[in-house]
Nucleic acid binder design. Structure first.
Lengths: 184, 184
DNA sequence: TGGCTCATGTAATCTGTTACATGATTCT
DNA sequence: AGAATCATGTAACAGATTACATGAGCCA
């Protein structure tokens, strides 16, 4: 009975009405580095929350397209507040890269270096996006008074990504620089 | 068709024969901060690998208890080497704490601080264990010549845990120190 | 003797992704 | 006109945990 999808939906709807599609996009962009949800989770959960009267479907499709907008209800807010007091689920992290580093002797240094460089590139992008998001927040109004909270989350991402990249530098140095490729 | 469990098993067996129970314990202790496997994955996968002749059951129960030991075969090593060249699966990270920080306005600072302190405590423990493992490795022989690889993995853990704790300090400071508890 | 840990295993369940179907709108 | 994106949804599948059953050996 873990089901944190419901709270992600409730939390995001607390900032204003959104569609299932919107929610997916927001989760992908803002929560990318620490959370994920798929359509297969979002749409059924919306149905569920609607039945429980935690959210309600707006009859103003508001958009040119036939988008279904949902808004959080008082009951939904109550649910959200209740969740906040519950202990966190054990965090889950899966980094295949570290398995490969652990079992490194079964690969050539060149192959290992490629894995690390791919990882580094991903996290350089992450870092760049986090920085961009930081700047964006500084230049837009804060109607929900949650910018500081969001900045705190971003700061977590910045710090961990910097740690990742620091480690990557160390590894690349150990494995020999870019021009020491010894693959055939 | 992800199934990385097989490679974890093969990799660990490359250091010497182990039982399913052993493997579980090793994964829990050494891979704790970046990987996990449950019995429901390990035992069926052992069966599967045995059928594929990637591992074989030893007939020397070696232990007083009725423990089934398995050893990797040449075919298994081949499999392991093949996996090393494959691209990594997208890493997966789920940190409920960050959802709560993002939606912080639905909780009191006191509750939020408790979550962060719990997180900090967990990662202080992690860090301590990683340091202990580092020291342990320095004082034991290295028959498989993989200590540096293991130290590299540990170093990743150390760096990320330090980043976590750094962020926690920042958050606790923001939320008011230990003695500013305003709960009833 | 009773309780704990060691040890193997599986069935039921839960969680989450993928792939697809469907159709509208927008862009080139 | 055709391709891409927007948008909703679900069925099938894959991945992973939980809870339990079973029994042996160890410890107090």
């Amino acid at each position: 009975m873990a089901g944190r999808t419901r709270y992600v939906i409730l939390g995001l709807l607390s900032e204003g009405p959104q569609s299932g599609y919107d929610l997916k996009r927001i989760i992908e962009t803002r929560f990318r580095f620490f959370w994920n949800e798929s359509y297969g989770q979002i749409y059924p959960q919306i149905r569920q929350l609607e039945q429980e009267r935690k959210i309600r479907k707006l009859d103003t499709p508001d958009d040119v397209r036939n988008k279904q907008l949902y808004a959080i209800t008082d009951l939904g807010v109550k649910d959200l507040r209740g969740w906040m007091k519950e202990p966190d689920l054990k965090e889950s992290i899966r980094l295949e890269l570290l398995l490969k580093v652990y079992f490194a002797k079964f690969a050539s240094p060149a192959v290992l270096r490629e894995h690390i460089q791919a990882f580094a590139m991903t996290h350089e992008d992450d870092l760049a996006q986090l920085r961009a998001f930081q700047n964006e927040l500084k230049n837009i109004p804060d109607p929900h008074h949650n910018h500081q909270d969001i900045l705190n989350v971003i700061e977590f991402g910045v710090k961990t990504n910097l740690a990742y990249l620091d480690w990557c530098d160390m590894m690349i140095e150990t494995l020999g620089g870019l021009n020491h490729d010894q693959s055939k």
